[in-house]
Design a binder for these strands. Structure first.
Length: 217
DNA sequence: TGCCAGGCCGGGT
DNA sequence: ACCCGGCATGGC
């Protein structure tokens, strides 16, 4: 079976088992963007606390995120970890959003995918996964998100080499699958779900439900 | 107790 | 072009 067919079969197997995930777990584009930055190398549970703090402080909006002093914002997002780093990153994004789009998300979303991706990557603290998460889940643009779970699951299932980097993996998905926002959305969400449940660093695999499809190392 | 979590940056080689 | 330390909280 060709790799493209395996990727489609992997999706079918996950979808059949777990169904639609209805991602991203956030109510508004603003919340999705903030969550994407806060979840960098961090358990989602801790991000939820930070977002809850922002909501309770009525600070989950672009005006307050711009004007809050560093120390106050850092205190609100403390549960998400790396709070000083992430405060700088949030500030950098927010400053860019005001400078480039006057904090109007509709204007930002109207930017063509590839130029918007380059703009996002130019912001300090916005790397490839964060940029792609924003583009796919907040903007609704067809770009595939790669994360640690994606690489681990595909490696374990021998669909990629261990040394494959972000761009290679992203390109593999995008060249193998139809260019479809909803498919990219569900695929990444399902990979995260399976990763959390069954594909942790160690033990290597605990009751992986996809064993009949894949070839566990 | 130590390892892990939906990364990314900056400095050194 | 790689490699690595730093960043920090909370769950198991």
């Amino acid at each position: 079976m060709a790799t493209a067919e395996k990727l489609q079969a992997l999706y079918d197997a996950m979808f059949a088992t777990y169904g639609p995930q209805h991602w991203w777990p956030g109510d508004t584009p603003t919340e999705i963007i903030i969550g994407a930055i806060l979840t960098q190398n961090t358990a989602w549970r801790n991000v939820e606390r930070a977002i809850e703090n922002l909501k309770n402080a009525s600070a989950l909006n672009w005006l307050d995120l711009r004007d809050l002093p560093h120390e106050q914002l850092a205190e609100l997002i403390r549960p998400a970890g790396y709070f000083n780093v992430k405060t700088r990153r949030l500030k950098a994004f927010v400053q860019w959003l005001w400078d480039s789009y006057n904090a109007d998300l509709d204007r930002m979303f109207a930017t063509p995918l590839h130029s918007l991706r380059e703009e996002l990557l130019s912001i300090n603290g916005i790397g490839r996964e964060t940029a792609d998460s924003i583009l796919l889940y907040a903007c609704g643009l067809p770009t595939f998100v790669v994360d640690a779970y994606t690489a681990r699951i595909l490696t374990r299932h021998r669909l990629i080499d261990e040394t494959a980097d972000y761009d290679e993996i992203k390109e593999l998905f995008e060249s193998s699958l139809p260019d479809n926002v909803q498919l990219f959305n569900e695929y990444h969400a399902l990979l995260v779900h399976v990763g959390k449940e069954h594909c942790r660093p160690k033990p290597r695999c605990s009751g992986c439900p996809l064993e009949s499809f894949v070839h566990e190392v």
